[in-house]
Write a protein that binds this DNA or RNA. Sequence first.
DNA 1: GTCTATAAATGGATAGAC
DNA 2: GTCTATCCATTTATAGAC
Lengths: 201, 201
Amino acid sequence: MVKSSTKKELIVSAARKLFLEAGYGATSMDSIAAEAGVSKRTVYSHFKNKENLFAAIMGDMCDLISGTNPNEPIPANEPEQVLKQLGLHIIESVMEPEALDVFRVVLAESPVFPELGKAFWKAGPDVMKGFLVDYLVELDRRGILQINNPELSAFQFMGMIKWPYHMRLLFGAGKPPTKSEIEESLDLAVSTFVNGLKLKK
Amino acid sequence: MVKSSTKKELIVSAARKLFLEAGYGATSMDSIAAEAGVSKRTVYSHFKNKENLFAAIMGDMCDLISGTNPNEPIPANEPEQVLKQLGLHIIESVMEPEALDVFRVVLAESPVFPELGKAFWKAGPDVMKGFLVDYLVELDRRGILQINNPELSAFQFMGMIKWPYHMRLLFGAGKPPTKSEIEESLDLAVSTFVNGLKLKK
DNA sequence: GTCTATAAATGGATAGAC
DNA sequence: GTCTATCCATTTATAGAC
C-alpha cells in the first residue's frame, strides 16, 4: 500500500534541505515546520528536539555517502586504469552539490557534534581509504609498486586527487572543473603516483 | 605612549576568540560584549552590526594566515630538501589550532559571506601555490623535473601533503600526528612526487 | 565614547484540545 | 498524531543619559 508521504518523511525532507542549505544555527524549527507544511508540534512529536533532529538527518546523510563508495572487486586491468577509475569516482562524488553541503555542515558542527564528524570520516574517506589500501597491497604483492605504508599512500593519493578542486569549490574560489580538466588532473596524479612508487631496480 | 588596550582592541580580541570557538551563529553580541568587558552599546559604536564585525575579524585572520607564508627566495639545495621544507611549513601551518578554527568557520560561512571564502583561498592556498609554481618551473627549466602543468602539480603536491592529517584533525577523527609521523609522511610524499615527475630518459 | 535600560523580533519548546 | 496558541529565554539593535 503506497502512501504519498508521511508527515515524518515530510519533516525529514524539509529539515534535510534547510540544514544543508543554511547549517544548524541558521535553521529554525519554525522554518522546518513551515517547509514541511506541518505544525511545529508535529515536528516535536517525531523528534525530541532540534539537536536530535539534526543528528538524525546528518547521520543519514553520512550513511548515504558511504553507500556511493565502490563495493565491487577491482578488475585486474592496468594499475593506471584502475587508479584513474577510482580517482574519477573520488573526485566526482565529492563534487556533488549535496556532498559539498554535507561536508561543510558536518565540519562546521563537528566541535558540537563530535560523533557526527567521526561518522562522516568513517563513512566517507575511511571507506575509500580501505578500498585503496587493499589494492595498493595487491600491487605491492604483485611486484608492481613498492608500498611500504599502504594507509599513508592511500591517503596521499586521495589528497592529490580530490584536494585541489574540492577545496576551491567549497570556498567558492573557482568554477567546477570541466571534464577535460578532471581528465588532465587524473592523468597527471595517477602517473605521478605510479611512477613515483614504481619498484626500483 | 603605550596604552594597555583600547576598548576596540578588547572587542576585537573577544570577538575573534568567540567566533573562532563557536562560529558565527552561536556567538551573540551579548557574549562578545561580556567577554570584552564592555557594554553592548560600545560594541555597536565600533562596528555597525554583527555581520560587519564578523567580516572584519575573519578578514583579518585571513591576512594573518597569509603572513605566515614563506617570502624568502628558495635556497638552491636538493629539490627533495626544498620540497620537504616547504611541505613541513604547509602541514605545520594548517594544523595550528587557530588555523583549524579559521578554516572551519570561514568554510561554514562561505555561502553567506562569499567574499570571505575567496579571501581565505587567496591569502592561504593560493599564495603557497604561487610559491610552489615558481619553484617547480625552475626545476623544469633546470631539467630536473618535467612539469607540464605547474599549477596543477603544485596543487596536487599540496593536497598530498596536507589533506590526510588536516582533514582528520578537522573532523575530530584522529590525534595530531607525531613529529615522526609527519616526517614519514613528508618523506613519502616528496619522494613519490619527485620520482613521479623526474625527467624521463 | 560609554553606560543602563529597553525595544522588537525570533528562537526552542510546551499546554491542552481534538 | 496533529493542530492552534502561547510561554519564556535570548537575540540584534537602539534610546537616551552622562
